[in-house]
Write a protein that binds this DNA or RNA. Structure first.
Lengths: 107, 107
DNA sequence: ACAACAAATCGAGATATATCGATTTAATTT
DNA sequence: AAATTAAATCGATATATCTCGATTTGTTGT
């Protein structure tokens, strides 16, 4: 029996994941090199993908995508790293795994 | 590598699970004998719990709970069985497992 | 200091979800 | 057949989410 110390708010994560675009973003970030153009201001995808590329791919407005990424970050599904003017987002694999394990017990 | 034939609509299930009462109901139905009064019109909980008992426990209106249970049934999280005037709902363990496995791959 | 730009935040209108009471449907009992 | 009852559906209002353009904030380059 495994206990998870950190209280993960399944409800809030579920809310974030009840939108197809946000699910898509999480998926695309699995393989940035397949889903996004090459990076310009950083050498590789190790810190993830910048907001503008994610925005381009979705076709939604800058404010909407920034809002989506902020809420995904707030529930710890994504990790944000700032390099100069740009913010890069990547998956938080630990927390995603934690979420699925929590579901396995709680659902 | 496992492939799931049935196309499970993760988005729709997530929407259903972005409500605390519906999450609670799914949880209570894990152990009906601990969470609900004894059955009256059927011998045991093998077909689940009737709508009125679930309604009592939540304190929400009859129409709201019926609506919730219908939507949980529509995405196959619950199985409905009618006995006379009463409808009994129980967990669809296969589909719940299927959902979590799908998340493990798709998320 | 100032102009330029990426990202975040704000404010607003449109759409969706939550929740109720009233009505309808289906089954049971008299 | 009529009355009763459990559950589902309908119609409506309140609250929340979606999505945008405009503004603000933070960083870089001149």
């Amino acid at each position: 029996m495994l206990y998870y110390i950190c209280t993960m708010d399944v409800l809030e994560v579920n809310k974030v994941l009840s939108n197809q675009v946000r699910i898509d973003i999480l998926n695309w970030l699995k393989k940035p090199e397949e889903n996004f153009p090459p990076q310009v201001n950083v050498p590789d995808f190790s810190d993830g993908v910048c907001v503008c590329h994610i925005q381009d791919k979705t076709g939604l407005s800058q404010s909407t995508i920034s809002h989506y990424l902020t809420m995904m970050h707030r529930v710890d599904l994504l990790i944000a790293t700032r390099h100069g003017k740009w913010t890069y987002y990547r998956r938080n694999e630990n927390e995603i795994r934690n979420y699925i394990n929590t579901l396995k017990n709680d659902l």
